[in-house]
Simulated scan of single mutants.
Amino acid sequence: MKTIYHASDSRGKANHGWLNSFHTFSFANYYDPERVNFGALRVLNDDTVSGGMGFGKHPHDNMEIVSIPLDGALEHQDSMGNKAIIKKGEVQLMSAGTGVTHSEKNFDLKNTVKFLQIWIMPEKRNIQPRYEQEVFEAEGRKNAIQTVISPIGSNDGGLKINQKAWFSLVDLSGEIKYDLKDKSNGVYVFVLEGDVEVENQKLNRRDGFGVWEIGTLNLKTDTSAEILLMEVPMKF
């Protein structure tokens, strides 16, 4: 088993006034050669956007982009003709493929929106762009592994990503095991709320912990924790 630990307060930071962002991996003006990616996981940004503000229209290509609202509502528009509001309890996936432009802004004019912006490097390049979003009920992740993203062509639930990757949410009170779908993959654990112990590593709110060369992951908490598990290829 190999591991890497990223404490919450070790992340890169950027405060633009309307946007307060924490970068687990190198992004924009934050660069750390030791923190460029975890396998196919390239970007993990923890963003807070002021009321009515947001990211104007901008392009992406050949990247799998996942947005997970944590509080508030995010408005999305793109060049594929999609216009949507994404709220807590929903997950959004956009396969940029050959190229797409999109904008994201806080749907609320007063209150902030908080969301995770995650980029996964794709398995296949130059595919036709795609967009999906789905509601995932909280009851489905209470002391259970709730799959919210899985590979195109798989029989697992959730949105379909252009990579051999699986994302899962867990609201944990007690102990649970996560069995890797592909033993050659690694899992990046990101604590949304609370405290949890993963393979004897204690993690607090917004800590990250990457684990690979392991088949099963053991997680436990004495209180409660909300956790995002991102299983990704380490080689691709």
Rank of each mutant, 00 (worst) to 15 (best):
M1C: 07
K2W: 06
Y5W: 05
S8M: 09
S8K: 10
R11C: 08
G12A: 12
G12I: 10
W18V: 05
W18L: 08
W18F: 13
N20T: 02
N20G: 00
F22Q: 15
H23N: 05
A28K: 11
A28Q: 14
P33K: 10
P33L: 06
E34H: 13
N37G: 03
F38S: 04
F38C: 12
L41D: 02
V43A: 15
N45A: 12
D47M: 09
G52H: 09
G52C: 11
M53N: 03
G56F: 00
H60S: 05
I65V: 15
I65N: 08
S67D: 05
I68K: 14
I68N: 12
I68E: 14
P69L: 12
G72L: 01
L74A: 02
L74H: 01
E75F: 10
D78A: 02
M80L: 15
G81D: 04
G81F: 00
N82K: 15
A84E: 10
I85M: 06
I86K: 07
K88C: 12
G89A: 08
G89W: 06
E90R: 01
E90P: 02
V91K: 08
Q92S: 04
M94E: 04
S95L: 06
A96D: 02
G97T: 07
T98S: 12
G99S: 09
V100D: 08
T101C: 05
H102G: 01
S103E: 05
E104G: 00
N106S: 02
F107R: 02
D108M: 02
L109G: 04
N111Y: 04
T112H: 06
V113P: 07
I118R: 00
I118E: 01
W119A: 14
M121G: 04
M121N: 09
K124F: 15
K124Y: 13
K124H: 12
R125Y: 10
I127G: 04
P129K: 01
R130I: 04
Y131T: 09
E132S: 11
Q133D: 08
E134M: 07
F136W: 06
E137M: 10
G140E: 06
R141Q: 03
Q146Y: 10
S150R: 00
I152G: 11
I152R: 09
N155V: 00
N155C: 01
D156W: 07
G157A: 15
G158C: 13
L159Q: 08
L159T: 05
N162W: 05
Q163G: 09
K164S: 12
A165L: 08
W166T: 10
W166D: 01
F167D: 03
S168V: 04
L169C: 01
L169Q: 04
L169S: 02
S173Y: 00
K177Q: 13
L180P: 11
S184F: 12
S184M: 14
V187T: 08
V189G: 11
V189F: 10
L192H: 07
L192C: 08
N200G: 02
Q201T: 12
Q201N: 09
L203K: 15
L203M: 15
N204S: 15
R206I: 06
R206T: 11
G208E: 06
W212K: 08
E213I: 09
L217R: 07
L219F: 13
K220V: 03
T221Q: 09
S224C: 14
A225G: 14
I227C: 11
L229S: 13
V232R: 11
V232D: 10
V232N: 11
P233K: 07
